[in-house]
Nucleic acid binder design. Structure first.
Lengths: 204, 204
DNA sequence: CCTTGTGAAGTGGTTCACAGCT
DNA sequence: AGCTGTGAACCACTTCACAAGG
């Protein structure tokens, strides 16, 4: 299945809106209104998915929901590790959304010996030295990095080496990413600066 | 100043790359390599900024850096409040990047009486009941929401009412945003699902 | 000679508008 | 009658390729 990048970014939104609407039929009109999107956009996206609506009626919410979950691979139970157990890492470890969305949290790691052994939401924090091994043994394919910026580059290389193909990083660092690895950076500071731009330049 | 949205998103990256390079002259080639962008892209972006490079030489890093900071409004000292002092809110409050980037943290708020009075990184947590008043009195223009999803919609309305024009939200909720307010949602679950899609559908 | 600034072409995504089903 | 599916127009952004200039 090959869909436009922009469409992929919207699939999780559709899934969430669908759950919040909790109806058994939805039109592109309704779904668009909820998600803040043009109905034509919704139809095109769902069409890419291979979804089949009924003209004059709309889409079957149960079927659609299942198609979204399947396209997103939420039934695959992908294994995830959290690296860096500071406040942010702890927040993520405590976040209930993993199981709910079908992800399997396979471990939490930190370089600080003081943090190793600590328990977080049913996990015992392990030392990063054991990370590469754990990734292979526990069949992990995704990693979330919440370490300081300096550690990010090395971790990304190590993770790629160990077979991780998707990385979500909260470390405020610009990183060179090995080919074949999907890297998504979320940076508070960047987001704030963009908001600051619009505040400073008066655009709604 | 009116620049393409996509360009605005890259300005913080340029600023960061510039700092990491710490040279006094940079070419679009170098900057592009560091940021993972096409040199032509860099030139066009900087040109929008009104930046003046020297042909055959490149850009003056000090001047460029200053132009970026100015365009982003980092010298405005915008006031920011953090709403929700759970693990995530605490992580953000402890994050050093605010001052460094010229933001002024004007308060931390929570609805939970047990959290009120607690001290976080030099701030005393206040009850949300005092939020609207604090926003006006302390000249706050930005807010970061790290509450549970259910609280988001009400907060956004209240914040807009009180005069906040830029909101960064980590609450996993789809929210209706009043006109004139810039709302940026960062959702862990959404990001993971997008990564999961590519993992499941085998695209590098 | 090297690197910027920029027309022009290329790419990807969005929206319109309506034909086609149910 | 109502809503989907979709060609075609539109729009925003990216990249090429090269003339202009230090």
């Amino acid at each position: 299945m090959t869909l436009p990048e922009a469409t992929v970014q919207r699939l999780p939104i559709y899934l969430q809106c669908l759950e919040e609407l909790s109806k058994d039929r939805v039109s592109s009109e309704e779904l668009g209104a909820k998600a803040g999107l043009n109905p034509a956009q919704v139809r095109r996206d769902l069409h890419y998915l291979g979804s089949k609506g009924t003209r004059g009626v709309g889409y079957d919410a149960t079927v659609l929901s299942q198609q979204l979950r399947e396209a997103l691979g939420l039934d695959q139970g992908w294994g995830v590790v959290i690296i860096g157990v500071g406040n942010l890492g702890t927040a993520l470890a405590n976040y209930g959304g993993f199981d709910e969305r079908g992800f399997r949290v396979a471990g939490a790691f930190d370089a600080d010996p003081d943090k190793v052994g600590r328990r977080v939401n049913g996990l015992t924090v392990e030392h990063v030295d054991g990370l590469a091994e754990a990734i292979v043994e526990r069949d992990v394919h995704m990693a979330i990095i919440t370490t300081p910026a300096g550690a990010a580059q090395g971790l990304v290389e190590m993770l790629a080496e160990a077979g991780v193909r998707s990385i979500l990083s909260f470390a405020p660092a610009v990183v060179r990413v090995p080919p074949g690895v999907r890297y998504r950076r979320v940076d508070l500071s960047t987001e704030l600066q963009v908001l600051s731009f619009y505040l400073s330049n008066g655009v709604g």
